[in-house]
Amino acid sequence: MFDLTGKTALVTGASGGIGGAIATALHAAGATVGLSGTREAPLQELAETLGERAHVLPCNLSDAEAVEALPKQAIAAMGSLDILVNNAGITADNIFMRMSDDEWSRVIDVNLTSSMRLCRGVMRPMMKARWGRIINITSVVGVTGNGGQVNYAASKAGMIGLTKSLAQEVASRGITANCVAPGFIETAMTDKLNEKQKDGILTAIPAGRMGTGDEIASAVLYLASQEAAYVTGQTLHVNGGMAMI
C-alpha cells in the first residue's frame, strides 16, 4: 500500500522486538534501512534475513560522540537519510522515593537526549532534500503516567514535546515529525512482567490482548509514507483502546 522505494531509513533499537518489526516493514515497502542498536549480533542476523538494502550500524546511545556520528555513518552507508525512527529505549523502574539520580539520567539520556541528538543530526540532509520523516517511538505512559516509571514516563513525555516543537519549526520544509505511542506490546520489555501483572494489564485493554511489534510497525510505515505528508506533530496511539486520548 505504501511505497518507500528509493527512500532510506535509520531505525534505532533495531535489535529489539518493535525496532526489528519497524525495520522489516519499512524494508518490505522498498526502503533501504540502517539497523542501529548496541548489540551487533542480532542486527547482523536481521540484516541477513532482510537481504539487500540493509546496513548494520551499531551505536551505543549513551555515548554522545557515537550518537553524533551515527547520522553521518548512515548517510555514508546508504547515500542519504530520509526517515529517522527513534525507537531505542530503556527502562530503569523504581518507586519514585527510591529512584536514584543514576536511574533517572540513564533513562533520560538514552530515551530523550539521544533522540534529540539524532533529530538534530538529520536536519541538514532533510532540509536540503526538502523531504524528511521523523518518527519518535514514545509510549502510552508518556501521556497517562505510570507508577514506578517516573523516569521512563518523563522521557517519553519529553519526546512528545520535542516532536511537536520540531514539527512546527520544519513543517514548511516538507519534513514531518510525529510520535507513535505503543501500549502494551509483546516484547522482551513486557516479558519481564509476571502472570498476575499481565492479567491486570489485560483487563484494562478493551481489545483484550497485548499488541504486536507488527502493529506498531504499520503505524510507523504510514507516518513514513508520502501519504502522511500532511500529518505532523501528532502522536498516534496504538494500544488496543487502553487509553483513548
Partner: peptide, 9 residues
C-alpha cells in the same frame, strides 16, 4: 530564522 540557517548551509 530557518531561512538564515539554510543560507549559511
Amino acid at each position: 530564522s530557518l531561512d538564515t540557517v539554510e543560507l549559511v548551509m
